[in-house]
């Protein structure tokens, strides 16, 4: 384990370099130039490539935050549409991923508010349905040995635990762990202070740690 800090340092430097000119940032700058030049149709065609580049990552974040496939789909669509409509405001000096993540988080928050408004009037067992979905799918994927089934079942429990985290903790945990965002980037994306991000992250990890490591 002596090599661990070195690995940390390498990943950090690599990430710092990525943040300046990611493929998404380069593509976004190109699209912005097209929009500013009045070639909106060409820009829209190029935007399809940008969507393809970020789509899966966006869906992962949205789905684990919203815990509903339809809501995640809508939120991601809204986020991309908003990005294109405000492309002229994109600043090339900042990482496009961070800007996009902020817009995506806002789109997810809008969906969440909308859902809470609906749930105020209509009682839907949303959590039960969605929490079971990965389990059903995992069980239906392929026959496996008993050990694999146990391992899978255990991970489904962990996923359920993630899904039952409070909204903010789940958002911070998803961005930090799944999307590998730093506390500073999460702070930018969510509007929380870095200290608040850290608090939410550690609380989330504390709730999950009982299912990790020692129970292996």
């Amino acid at each position: 384990m002596s090599g661990q800090p070195i690995e940390v340092a390498q990943r950090t430097s690599a990430r710092t370099g990525d943040a300046i000119a990611t493929p998404a940032s380069v593509l976004a700058a190109e699209i912005k130039a097209l929009v500013l030049a009045g070639e909106r149709d060409v820009a829209r065609d190029r935007f399809g490539s940008l969507v393809a580049l970020l789509q899966r990552r966006a869906l992962r974040i949205a789905y684990h935050y919203l815990r509903d496939a339809a809501d995640a789909d809508e939120a991601v669509q809204d986020a991309f549409v908003k990005v294109f409509l405000h492309m002229e405001q994109y600043r090339e000096d900042m990482a496009f991923d961070a800007w996009f993540t902020r817009i995506l988080v806002n789109a997810c928050l809008d969906r969440l508010k909308s859902r809470h408004r609906q749930q105020r009037w209509i009682s839907t067992p949303l959590d039960d349905v969605n929490d079971e979905r990965p389990v059903e799918q995992a069980a239906a994927t392929a026959p496996s040995t008993e050990h694999e089934l146990l391992v899978r079942e255990r991970w489904q429990q962990v996923l359920k635990a993630v899904a039952t985290l409070p909204d903010r903790q789940r958002l911070v945990f998803t961005l930090s762990h799944l999307d590998e965002r730093t506390a500073g980037e999460i702070s930018e994306a969510t509007g929380m202070s870095p200290a608040t991000v850290r608090v939410h992250l550690f609380r989330a990890i504390r709730k999950l740690r009982g299912m990790l490591g020692d129970h292996r």
């Binding site: 940390v8 340092a9 590998e180 980037e185």
Partner: peptide
């Protein structure tokens, strides 16, 4: 365990001002 778990999730993650 709390400390180790936090390290496993955070410190091993890309560092910035918070993790370092």
């Amino acid at each position: 365990t709390d400390r180790l778990t936090a390290l496993a999730f955070v410190v091993r993650a890309p560092q910035d001002d918070s993790a370092g």
